[in-house]
Design a protein around this nucleic acid. Structure first.
Lengths: 187, 187
DNA sequence: AGATCCATGTAACACGTTACATGATTAG
DNA sequence: CTAATCATGTAACGTGTTACATGGATCT
């Protein structure tokens, strides 16, 4: 990752995080892993170079800060120019639906070459993971509604969570249906 | 794409395509764009180098073939070793759920900084695209059930289509719900 | 003494797209 | 003659991960 030239969403993700209280690369990573993980993820290898890019673009400023009981950190702040850029990006229309690359579906597509037992195992395994994910989303939703309802951004967090809940539930239902189609035709 | 070293799914996608009647890079691309596009996509810039990799690995063989009324083509055939590799891959468990990077959700997450009208526009736009995608899936499903039911792979094609239908419907419902939450609370 | 959290950063690699280049054949 | 379809391929670029490197502070 030597050069970053074109505008990309990663930049705006970090810009957005600056507006909701994340001011270091480390805290951004934590927020992403904790609350955006069902629709976005970023590694440190991307965060730190992108923070540099924000500085270069004049979208953010940085300040070295000593802390008590913790290592020093670099505190980033969004600039007026950065806020403008964020708003411009927010107003831009979404041109394409996201495409997920789904390994399970790829395997199912070719599973004529596989014994049904193995296919069944894949489906069970997948469904378990989906259920676990669903339960995580439910727990987060519960936490937001009970303890963070005063937070200004809370309604928007719930909206993105609802997306995760609905699509995950649909996938779980599909697993159930597929198992029936493949293994319980005799009903 | 100078070097390809590790095993990756792309290789197995092409191997799978070889087993369902696609024998050239061109026909593989067509099949992917037409029937796998809701869970997988590949560009020519990836297909041709990967076909070379299949040869290097001994998973496929190639033969130059002159055609009548069409340009020459390279006809690929899967080897026994390739079939074994495909089966090994099919049997391997799926370790991780796919993560979609969703630009709309990213924008919604930060949309406190945006006027509601613009957010509404994003949602409408997104929902239209989803509906259009849903209708495409329905049309393909109709075609498979009426005209390709004899095809040996047809049941598995329908399964992957059902996944697309269910998750897309869930996303459409979420759009509807979100619009209500944000704009018709008085309802 | 060791684990864990806080905190920053880079180099090598992997993966994928886009734009470009080429050219045959067929249909209008 | 020109557009579309069939067909193959590469170079440059963009984007992202992983592994590595470093080190302070706190907790057990």
């Amino acid at each position: 990752m030597v050069f970053i030239t074109r505008e990309n969403n990663t930049q705006y993700a970090l810009l957005g995080l600056l507006t909701i209280g994340c001011d270091t690369g480390y805290s951004m990573k934590q927020m992403i892993d904790g609350s955006l993980n069902h629709f976005w993820k970023i590694s440190y290898g991307q965060i730190y170079p992108t923070l540099k890019l924000l500085l270069d673009n004049g979208y953010a400023e940085v300040q070295d800060l000593a802390q008590e009981g913790k290592p020093d950190k670099k505190e980033y702040k969004i600039t007026d120019e950065g806020t403008e850029a964020l708003k411009r990006w927010l107003a831009q229309p979404i041109t394409e639906l996201p495409l997920e690359k789904n390994e399970l579906l790829l395997k199912l597509f070719f599973s004529r070459h596989q014994d049904l037992e193995s296919t069944h195992h894949h489906l069970e395994n997948y469904q378990e993971k989906l259920v676990s994910r669903y339960e995580t989303y439910e727990a987060i939703k519960e936490m937001i509604t009970t303890r963070l309802s005063a937070e200004e951004d809370a309604p928007f967090w719930l909206i993105t969570l609802n997306y995760g809940l609905r699509t995950t539930q649909a996938a779980i239902d599909w697993c159930e249906e597929t198992k029936e189609v493949l293994f319980h035709k005799e009903g």
